[in-house]
């Protein structure tokens, strides 16, 4: 299945891309997502995504724990937000 992954702000600059489409197996987990990103982009490039203060949103909702992905999901990696 295909899943679109978005990167914002500092992560977009660190990774050098705003989005990537991944080919994942059905019901891919958080670990599967990170494995696939590492394979696609390399471990050095994806290192900032592992930071503790980076949030993951699935279809625009923050997911703090484990998750399984569905075909067509939109995954976003969000650095700490600074609104206002």
């Amino acid at each position: 299945m295909r899943v679109n992954v978005l990167f914002f702000a500092s992560l977009k600059e660190d990774l050098g891309c705003a989005e990537i489409e991944l080919q994942l197996s059905e019901l891919a987990s958080r670990a599967d997502l990170f494995d696939c990103l590492t394979n696609e982009l390399g471990s050095a490039r994806v290192a900032p995504l592992f930071a503790e203060n980076v949030s993951i949103a699935i279809n625009q909702s923050i997911e703090k724990g484990e998750f399984t992905l569905q075909s067509g999901d939109e995954v976003a990696f969000l650095p700490p937000i600074t609104g206002g």
Binding site: F8, I81, T82, G83, G84
Partner: peptide, 14 residues
């Protein structure tokens, strides 16, 4: 509202 905009509104400032 301002205190929550600072910490929970999805914006990034450079």
């Amino acid at each position: 509202i301002m205190d929550f905009l600072k910490t929970e509104a999805v914006f990034w400032k450079k």
